[in-house]
């Protein structure tokens, strides 16, 4: 709605910082407007094609048999669509990898939410020097790239005898999701009126009681946002699984995809079926909760 007022005629000049621009009128020649619409329309269609064509190709390729892949033009739909590739992927250990990914993601997200909610509550509620330091630590944490510390993390995981276990992925993934989560939750909790806490104080409720029956219900929307964001990061995460696990039985989906690529070799349709299958759970979530996903993706970075 902000851009539809272009043809209002000026009744009087309103003081507006630098926007005056010498009193030119807001009316544009129809030809100019048409040209603009053509340019905007064409560019948006071009970008749409750039996004949609590869996705379309992934789907139709996953439905081809291998002979068809080598003989038919890539963008022509398969004459005889087949689900064989999906069957092949499913029988090549896919259920194990799917289960591993679900376990890792659910555990890491649960851990992130619990730890970050308590931490944010402490930051907002205890206005002391140590709690401010505590918050600053997480702000600093935002700047630590996990790629840069992967070697010490690897050493640590070995020392903790966690190497090649799902927990080896869960713990560091949660640790690196916590700073953003704290940032989002603290921003949210700061808007909760003090009087609500004070009312519970007067009732003699302890900190745990306040956390459980006031903070938890109030922050539910922010928690959903954080869960979606960190869940997507963990589900798609590649470096921690690559470095910290080894046994194929412990592989999560992104790691399994690279293994499929090696295993299927020139059987590109099978690899694409694996790509589709590994994306389906997230895609389903995207369809159900696009709003939360979009909110989750931008929450940490817009104010």
């Amino acid at each position: 709605m902000t851009t539809t007022t272009s043809r209002t005629t000026p009744p009087s000049r309103v003081v507006l910082g630098q926007a005056a621009g010498g009193g030119r009128r807001g009316w544009t020649h129809p030809a100019t407007r048409t040209a603009r619409h053509v340019v905007v329309g064409a560019s948006s269609l071009f970008w749409t094609a750039l996004v949609v064509v590869p996705l379309y190709w992934i789907v139709i390729t996953s439905l081809r048999d291998q002979a068809d892949f080598f003989t038919t033009s890539p963008l022509t739909p398969p004459s005889d669509p087949t689900l064989d590739n999906y069957g092949l992927v499913w029988s090549s250990g896919f259920p194990t990898y799917l289960l591993n990914s679900v376990i890792v993601t659910v555990a890491a997200v649960a851990l992130t939410l619990a730890a970050a909610l308590m931490a944010s509550y402490v930051v907002v509620r205890f206005n002391s020097r140590s709690s401010r330091w505590f918050f600053r630590l997480f702000l600093l944490g935002l700047a630590i790239p996990l790629q840069a510390v992967i070697i010490p993390v690897y050493l640590l995981i070995i020392e903790l005898h966690l190497y090649d276990s799902l927990l080896a992925i869960v713990l560091p993934s949660a640790a690196f999701a916590i700073p953003v989560a704290v940032l989002v939750l603290v921003g949210f909790l700061r808007d909760v009126p003090r009087s609500l806490y004070e009312a519970m104080d007067i009732d003699g409720a302890g900190e745990w009681r306040i956390l459980w029956s006031l903070v938890l219900p109030l922050t539910r929307p922010a928690l959903t946002t954080v869960a979606v964001y960190s869940g997507l990061q963990v589900w798609n995460g590649f470096l921690f699984p690559l470095i910290l696990t080894q046994n194929p039985d412990r592989a999560v989906l992104p790691l399994a995809l690279t293994a499929f690529r090696g295993q299927f070799g020139i059987n590109v349709p099978a690899t694409m079926a694996a790509v589709v299958l590994s994306t389906l759970p997230v895609l389903a979530l995207f369809m159900i909760g696009r709003r939360q996903l979009v909110a989750g993706l931008t929450a940490g970075f817009t104010k």
Partner: peptide
Amino acid sequence: GAVMAAPALLLFGLFGVLPLGG
């Protein structure tokens, strides 16, 4: 408060801050 702060501090300290020195 200290108990509530502990899990985040421990996880992030162990896998974020310590490796930075490491």
